[in-house]
Simulated scan of single mutants.
Amino acid sequence: MEVIRNVARMQHLAHRLRGERTRIALVPTRGHLHDGHLALVRHAMRLADVAIVSILPLAKGVPREGGEKRLSATLTHDVELLISTGVNYVFAPPLDEFCPATAATEVVVRGLTERLFSPLWPGYYVRASTALTALLQVTAPEILCLGQKDPQLVAVTRRLVSDLHIPCQVVTLPIVRERDGIAACRGLSAMSEQERRAAALIYKALEKAQVLFGAGERDAANLMESVREQLEPEPSIRIDYLGVVDRETLEPLATIGDSPALMAIAVTIGRARLIDNIALE
């Protein structure tokens, strides 16, 4: 496994591999890798001849002082985890070089980058779509592997690839969950036992809504109310976002029709903000 920090080196390598008709898969990450990322990496390796994991620590919120240094400090740990997967390359360019503050270009996917979770992390999905476009240019993958935990990132990516005619197949994998149903994420290790028990309620509430949907309930307000009834009595949970949306357009739905829909949620427990979703189709 080779760790590449230089953009020109990564571009040269990707160009050579594509010239040799080598099939490349990319797994983009923000670092702080967990089991969900590792599952994506293993799947990417099954789909392609060469797999690349990018580590680009984009901050979702306003970065705290020294935040990027703390994120970069996890690179050693992430690389150690990736060695066990047998992945071919790790692309981890310095963030201030790959996404410099002086950059004048942004990629906005109208109707998608400003919906769903965007009010919780202003500007994040524009930064993510811009960085992803650059990553696709540099690494030239034929396959892009994403998890389904962030449905907004998936929708933005699919539309971006389609609109810009980027020759890349977007492959998504189901959410990797802990034994108690919590979606794998970076913040779990810092949770107390009580916070962890509260977090386990999220997926249970989503599952109940899915059962109601399966029984014929199509009113989004009723489905969301069932989730609130289960989560709001828990004092450590603050619901930051809860909505039923079209899976592709992210348009909020009052009534679920024939198009694939999903229920998405973001909650704060202690110092962690967790997101999750479940299909309603």
Rank of each mutant, 00 (worst) to 15 (best):
A103N: 08
L40I: 09
L75M: 02
R46L: 04
V53Q: 02
H77Y: 12
R115H: 05
S54V: 05
P94N: 03
I55Y: 07
V50H: 08
Y124S: 06
V50E: 02
E65L: 07
L81E: 08
V109L: 11
M45P: 01
E65S: 07
E114A: 14
P93V: 10
L120M: 06
R64N: 11
L112C: 07
E106Y: 13
G67S: 09
V62N: 10
V62I: 12
S84I: 08
R42F: 05
L58F: 08
K69T: 10
T85G: 09
E68M: 10
A39C: 00
L56H: 09
P100E: 07
A59Q: 12
V87E: 00
L58T: 09
T85D: 05
L56E: 11
A73P: 11
D78R: 00
A104H: 13
L81G: 03
L120Y: 13
K60Y: 07
E68D: 11
D78I: 04
H77R: 15
W121I: 15
K69C: 00
L58I: 09
V79M: 02
H77S: 12
R46N: 11
D49W: 08
A92N: 02
G123S: 06
P63N: 05
L75Y: 08
D49I: 11
A92S: 15
D49T: 12
P122F: 14
G111W: 12
L47R: 12
E114C: 13
L56Q: 04
A73K: 10
V108F: 15
E97W: 12
P100K: 05
Y124G: 11
G123R: 09
Y125T: 08
A48Q: 06
D78M: 00
L82E: 03
S72L: 10
Y125R: 09
T113I: 03
G123P: 03
V108H: 13
H43E: 14
L82N: 00
G123V: 04
S54E: 05
G61A: 08
H77P: 00
Y89I: 03
L81I: 01
F98C: 04
G66E: 08
V50Q: 08
E68A: 02
E68S: 02
V109R: 02
P122T: 11
L82W: 01
